[in-house]
Simulated assay, not measured.
Amino acid sequence: MGHPDVVVAGAGVVGAACAEALSRAGLRVVVLDRGAPASGTTAAGEGNVLVSDKEPGPELLLAQASRRRWPELLAELREELGPGRAEAEWDPKGGLVVATTDDSVLPLREFAAAQREAGVRAEPIGLDEAASLEPRLTKALTAAIHYPEDAQLQPVLAATTLLAAVKARGGQVRSGVEALGVLRAGNGAVRAIRTSHGAIACAAVVNACGPWAGAFAKACGAPIAVLPRRGMVLVTAPLPPGTVRHKVYDADYVGAVASGDADLQTSTVVESTRAGTVLIGSSRQRAGFDETVRFDVLRELARKAAALFPVLANVPVMRAYGGFRPYAPDHLPVIGEDPRLPGLWHVTGHEGAGIGLAAATGQLVAELFTGQESTVDATPFRVGRPAVAEEVRA
C-alpha cells in the first residue's frame, strides 16, 4: 500500500473506530498493537453504550452522538462486509437505575431531571413498573429511573468488525508491534512512527494506546496526563433467559464514575449477556498497573449484586477479570492533534466509557483530520486543556 497516511497505535475499540472512520474518509491506514487486537482494555469491558451515567455536558453530548452512530455504523458495515463479518451482538435493551435508600431518592431524581433537559430519555417509574421490567430485582427499592436508550454490544466483536473494514479497504492491522515513539521532520512535525519492528513513514500518528497513552505520549516528547484506573468484573454461570433483562445499577454508580478519588470504590452494576452469563461490577481504583487480584473486592461486588438481585446469591461464579481504563483528571476524553507536535493525535482518556463513546470518537477524529465540520464540539476534549497538559494552551 506504500506509506500510510496515518498509523494508529492501539487496536482496542477506540483505535479501531478511529481507523475505520479515517479509512472510510479515504485515508491509507495502518493499525498497530503490541498484543492482539482488542486484547487489552477492550477485552476487559462490559460492552456498555450508555447515556444514563453521564451528567449534562460535553461527555453526554459525545455519548448521545455515539448512541446514534453505533447502530448506523454496524448496519453500514454489515452491508459492506456481509453479516458474517460484522456481528457485534448489538442489544438496545435499555437500562434501569435504582435507589435503595431514602437518601438516594432526591439526588437520583434531580440527576434524571437534568438529563431530560439535555434530551435524554430518563423516565421515572413506579416500583411496580420496576418489578415488571425486572421481576428478579429486590423489592427493597425507594426509586427507579428507566433509560430506554442504554444499549450493549460485545466489545471484542465490535473492535474486530471495525478492523475488518479497515483491512477490506486496503489498510493493515499488525499484531505484536509495539509503538515506541515518533521521528520528526525538519519542521518538527511527525514523519514516522518508531516501532519494535522499525520505523514506518507516515504523515500522522494516532495515540490510541488507552491506559498506556500517557507513556507513549511521553516517549513522543509530548506528555499528557492519562493514568490507568483498574476495574474488576465477575462473570456468573449461564442463567435462564430473562433473569436479568436490562443493565441495572444502583444510583451510587454515577458518583463512582465521576469521582477522582484514587482509593478503591465499588458500586453495584448487573447485566446479562447474550450467552446467558451475568456480568457483575463495578470497581475503580488508581493503583498504577498493579494486576493483583483482590478477593476482598470480588467479595464486595458479589455481596452488593446479591443484595440487588437476590437470585444471584447461590449462582456460581465462572471467572473474574480485571482491566485498566485510561483516566484523565477532569474525566473527559482527550481527542485531537497535539499543538506541540504536528501530526501527533491523542485519542484516549475515555476511562470505562470507551466502548460506548468509540463510534462518535472515531467520527470526530476523521472530521477533524479532514477539516470537516464536526458533529460534536471538540473544544472540551482538546489536548491543550490545563488538566491534561499544563504547559500547553489551546
Rank of each mutant, 00 (worst) to 15 (best):
P326N: 09
V315L: 01
R382I: 06
A11T: 12
F381C: 04
A88E: 14
Y249H: 15
S39C: 09
L239F: 07
V206D: 08
L74F: 11
P241K: 12
Q363W: 08
A225F: 12
A21C: 02
V51A: 12
F309Y: 15
T266D: 09
L180I: 00
A366M: 10
L279F: 06
T277P: 02
V317L: 14
G2C: 07
V235H: 06
V311E: 14
G210Y: 11
L22P: 04
G57K: 05
G95S: 14
D338W: 10
G356M: 02
R229Y: 11
I200P: 03
V206Q: 00
R136T: 13
T142K: 15
T379G: 11
V29N: 03
A306Y: 05
A189Y: 06
R284V: 09
A17D: 12
A217C: 08
S104K: 15
E46D: 06
V334N: 02
A144L: 10
A258E: 08
K218R: 11
A313K: 14
H350Y: 08
D261G: 10
A389C: 15
R121P: 04
V6Y: 05
N314K: 13
A217M: 08
D250V: 01
G362E: 06
G82M: 10
L50C: 01
T375C: 02
S132Y: 04
L22H: 04
A143F: 12
L27T: 00
D261E: 15
T277G: 03
V6P: 10
I200F: 03
Y253G: 00
G40F: 14
A143E: 12
L141Y: 01
A251R: 05
P107H: 11
L106S: 12
A222H: 12
R169Q: 14
G47W: 11
T268F: 02
R299L: 09
V177Q: 07
P228W: 08
R194F: 01
V7L: 12
T195I: 01
S267C: 08
S104H: 15
G40L: 13
I200V: 12
V205F: 11
A378L: 13
A165M: 01
D91V: 13
G84T: 07
D263K: 13
G170V: 10
R393Q: 08
Y253Q: 00
D5C: 07
E72C: 09
R184G: 01
A144K: 10
T379P: 04
V248T: 13
A208V: 03
Y253C: 02
F369S: 09
V315N: 01
E72H: 10
S66Y: 03
T236G: 09
F381I: 09
A237G: 06
T160P: 09
G176C: 09
V31P: 07
E87V: 13
P92L: 15
R78K: 15
